[in-house]
Write a protein that binds this DNA or RNA. Structure first.
Lengths: 197, 197
DNA sequence: ATACTTACGAGTAACTTACGAGTAAATTAT
DNA sequence: ATAATTTACTCGTAAGTTACTCGTAAGTAT
């Protein structure tokens, strides 16, 4: 298990790589993480390589902006947990990174695994993976990950005459009406569905 | 992963070739990219050839045509066309490459766009993208891209008592029975579905 | 001759690596 | 309870390499 500081370090590299389509240089890491010395950056690199987390392409790189971990680290999104029909979101302790299409690999995106069949009429099946984007406000018609009083679920977001409604897309489930006292938090909005056969 | 400068170089060659229907000469590259020396251009060519990105073919006038090898393209797959319910596969003239998760980016994989709703009960919707793998023989239960007498379609593959059957997954469509004289070619097998919202 | 590609030598800035030393917190020893 | 030791990180700088650049000259096919 990585220390929080080391975790932050590798997260920075991943985010940078996804955004810029290349790994950062030592100097970029130094500035991005507010270190004052390249020695610190180098210390992390050496440590993480010892830990087997990252890998340098060649033994020695001289000038090489591309030394750290190459494609292994790019085009991946964190798989945060499982979101299911009505039960709470199951958040993974150790966040795993899984491959995703490059276009979706943005800093505020994450992935979840779907459990249950409440969205079956929208073609979202049990076991599918979804890419979601963190948002605060949803538009009517959006498919959102919403948590009500701490329980997260995947539903369609609508505004009815009596306030916010969360619609499943399966006739066996019923519409959830949000009361004043319910605490509704929009966690994210559906960006893509990926199903593996 | 290519360095940014090398990437820019191959992008230039690609763009030039697309626009002028021929690859650029060294001098054209030099001017186009504001290099002051042919040596620089040559250095890139040699490097990129070493990296397996481009290839030189003999032309006329001591000319060598440069061609970009598409195969190396990172984390992308060719989008070959549209496959629909019953009508023939619509093959694109110019093959476009689209982002795909790295795990699916294998030499024999390709992508298609789905038209129609014949597989709706399997959660494959109109407009979805599918990743398929070229195969010759299908297993019962596989979802396949099959062409019958030249017309390709996305269906489930089964073997019934009267021979091969292609099942749609929508009650409004009926099962296709393959006769002896029908020419059935399995083009590929469904690997993944990607839907963008 | 013309139009282009290849080859070679050398330079430079960008970048990585090595090394020595320091600090604050946690762990162990006394 | 206090002192000694380790652990996990941080800093600064100098030295080492390479990615990329240039200029020029020689080669090759029409």
């Amino acid at each position: 298990m990585l220390s929080p500081k080391k975790q932050k370090f590798v997260d920075y590299i991943k985010d940078f790589t996804n955004q810029n389509h290349r790994p950062p240089t030592f100097i970029e890491i130094m500035k991005g993480l507010n270190f004052k010395s390249l020695g610190t950056v180098n210390w992390y690199i050496v440590e993480l390589e010892k830990d087997g987390i990252i890998e340098r392409v060649k033994g020695f790189n001289g000038k090489r902006a591309l030394s750290i971990l190459e494609s292994h680290i790019a085009n991946q999104l964190p798989l945060l947990g499982v979101v299911s029909a009505g039960s709470p979101i199951d958040v993974f302790d150790t966040i795993e990174y899984v491959d995703a299409p490059e276009v979706y690999c943005k800093p505020n995106n994450f992935m979840l695994k779907v459990a249950g069949d409440s969205m079956i009429d929208d073609g979202i099946l049990d076991g599918d993976y979804i890419v979601a984007k963190k948002i605060q406000v949803a538009e009517p018609g959006d498919t959102v990950i919403a948590s009500i009083d701490g329980e997260a679920t995947l539903k369609r977001f609508y505004v009815g005459s009596n306030g916010i409604e969360l619609h499943p897309r399966n006739d066996n489930y019923s519409i959830i009406h949000i009361d004043e006292q319910d605490e509704l938090i929009i966690q994210g909005k559906l960006v893509a569905v990926i199903r593996e056969y």
